[in-house]
Amino acid sequence: MLYTILIVLVLLFLSTIKNLKGSSVWDYLLGINLISTKIIIIIVLFATEMQLDYIIDFAIIYALTGFIGTIFVATFLLNHDKSNQKEEET
């Protein structure tokens, strides 16, 4: 089970190196989203390794906050230009 954690960790770094080098802001957002889902998998694998029940609750909370965080950042990226344009128009 430990080897799977190592493999997933390597996958995490591999998949986000290209994204974080990306051009637009949304590449970074995609990289962060990838990191958060990989970390959920690592937490779950760790919990089964140690056979501890309460760690899965951490994974649930981390999943919720991680996803909601990227959702808000994405909507912010969309609207923050428009708010400036409205001030210019009026």
């Binding site: 949304w26 989203n33 990227t70 994405a74 909507t75």
Partner: peptide, 15 residues
């Protein structure tokens, strides 16, 4: 998960 990637793709497309 899919909801999040959809929102990222939508904001990228609209942006």
């Amino acid at each position: 998960g899919p909801l999040c990637t959809h929102i990222i793709a939508r904001s990228a497309f609209l942006g």
